[in-house]
Design a protein around this nucleic acid. Structure first.
Lengths: 343, 343
DNA sequence: ATTTCATTCGAAAGCCCTTTGAACGAACGA
DNA sequence: TCGTTCGTTCAAAGGGCTTTCGAATGAAAT
């Protein structure tokens, strides 16, 4: 059943039927009812491909998933996608997902998506400070919305979480508990969120009059295994930290394991604070103190921002920063009374 | 730059250009080179929508994500999607993802996907014993491939993991360690995998001559929280289990917490075995013994099966069952010497 | 009675590609 | 030499929808 058949069946033109179904105003109330009813009865639904071609719109939003190194990717992305998908669904837009490893393949994937007009706009997650995806999309004149800012800041639409402030707060909380040697297991430097996390951390230390120790800031992939490695390295320092902030929960969980495996007690000997509030966070030993951002909601909002962009709204008017909040659980506590640390 | 412009530029017909780019044989070697070169130089790439309409193919595969109850969905789906996406990418097919809550909305989502011809085929994950999605898709004459079987078995293409055998093995291993009261925290009964898990469990008990105790089989949502609740209920039994199998890792992690929170030692007092081998599994306390299935690979294979179906292969020829293997870690061990439990 | 205008509908022109059927010269075999 | 085949190319017919432009209608305004 296609439009022609349906319109013939109704004794109307395709124009009218199309308009009646499309909700256009210039069609008589009763005619519309007849059309809608007939469409329902005959099981007509417009062919997506034809509609896309005629309207010149892809009717889809794209997203490129990063291929994770190990097995099992970061659940963060799934949560984000669900938020996005939920919102797009109600707008009758498709969410097109592609998987590609960072680098060449990734750029190629984006290029194909926009070049072949497979999507109307893109959502870019986990921005990098100098993000080749963003510059490429901008050069290609493609509409996009990002989760995360970049540096230097471009005038694109973005939603970001104020990780800077969140980390500053977490760090200040640790300072308030007497910690002086606080480490940061950060994400890879190319990610912009790493820069923000570090800045928040550094600011809080500076505000407390604590000299920054470069040895206490290490980078690692955002996985359990790498978090554990980084924590192990910190533990082996001549003057090890009494508290550790990590860029996400998987890393924190890895750190927890590394510390406990080395015989340290958490939080008595060392405090750990993560970021994400994954479902496992309350279930670790001890339950993980972490920072929580509303990922699903962010996904929905990103989808909305895409819609706004496609409706012509200016990118500058679509820039938001959301707060993250500290979820205190059992993995952080007062600084241990140190035997050493003279001066 | 579209096909007409490109062909005019080359002084060739659209037919020839289209064929040259499409890799058809009936075009002169040198002509093809000219065309390919010009397309590259002028940045031509065919319009997806037009191609779809002309070819009558959507060039996309669909998938409907279940909306999780709590925050953060099961990472299993992301891993699956990545496997699927990776394979489709190389075939130049889109993966269209929609999120919908189980029930009406879900069926509506599937219906829209096939009705509007948005996708050529669908991948259905986590089949249920009587699965309304499967019957609907079959009635609609839509091509689909499922991860998981159903009951009664339809002649659709599927890939399933032999959870039955895996659970039987895990259960037998526990019996071998002296356990007699082995519990199963199962997935909701409507999921077919729950049926398989239970069957494997029951078979192993029967083989060992152990009478099945209905009180030892409980159902729960596949989340940490519900796993914990179920474990707590089992622990309170007059004659509690000495070992627990769970339908997935999140539940196992919940069970771990519940047992430890009640002062039980794992595995000394009670053994726990999960299913999935999530990245956190090696990092729990103690490290979780679990069953592992290759999810990413399953995704890729599912994508391949879709391709085969679209190429005309019979569904009956596309039915596979993959093994899962036990990953022994520290959460299971010999049965405790029991004080009670009289003859 | 004439003009104006809002309402409602339709014919037809795309949108950009794929694919069918046919044409054309060159090479071939008889 | 003539028909045949092959290799190469093209014109044209869609595919199913949206949208522009115009026309018909009847009511309201003059």
């Amino acid at each position: 059943m296609n439009l022609r058949e349906l319109s013939r069946h109704l004794g109307l033109s395709q124009t009218t039927v199309s308009r009646a179904l499309g909700g256009y105003p210039e069609v008589n109330h009763r005619t519309r009812e007849r059309v809608v009813e007939a469409a329902r009865a005959l099981g007509y639904s417009p062919n997506r491909s034809a509609r896309r071609l005629a309207s010149g719109k892809a009717g889809a939003i794209g997203m490129v998933l990063p291929l994770p190194a190990g097995h099992f990717a970061d659940p963060f992305f799934l949560e984000l996608m669900i938020g996005i998908g939920e919102r797009l669904e109600s707008e009758d837009l498709d969410l097109v997902v592609t998987a590609a490893a960072a680098g060449e393949a990734e750029i190629a994937a984006y290029r194909r998506l926009v070049g072949e007009r497979r999507v109307d706009a893109l959502i870019v997650a986990r921005t990098r400070s100098a993000d080749p995806r963003l510059t490429m999309l901008r050069e290609a004149g493609a509409a996009f919305v990002a989760l995360g800012r970049s540096d230097p800041p471009l005038d694109y639409a973005y939603l970001d979480v104020d990780a800077e402030n969140a980390f500053a707060e977490a760090c200040a909380a640790l300072v308030g508990l007497g910690h002086r040697r606080i480490a940061l297991i950060n994400a890879p430097a190319e990610l912009h969120l790493a820069r923000l996390r570090r800045r928040g951390y550094a600011d809080a230390l500076a505000a407390a009059g604590i000299a920054a120790d470069p040895a206490l800031v290490v980078e690692a992939d955002m996985t359990e295994a790498d978090g554990a490695r980084a924590a192990e390295a910190l533990r082996r320092l001549a003057d090890p930290p009494t508290a550790v902030l990590t860029a996400n929960d998987p890393m924190a969980i890895g750190a927890l394991r590394a510390f406990k495996g080395a015989g340290l007690r958490v939080p008595d000997d060392v405090s750990v604070i993560g970021y994400d509030d994954l479902p496992v966070a309350p279930l670790t030993e001890p339950p993980l103190t972490t920072l929580r951002q509303p990922v699903r909601e962010a996904g929905s909002r990103l989808a909305e921002m895409v819609l706004a962009r496609l409706a012509g709204e200016a990118a500058e008017a679509l820039q938001e920063i959301w707060p993250a909040r500290l979820v205190p659980r059992g993995s952080h506590g007062p600084a241990p009374a140190r035997a050493a640390a003279p001066g």
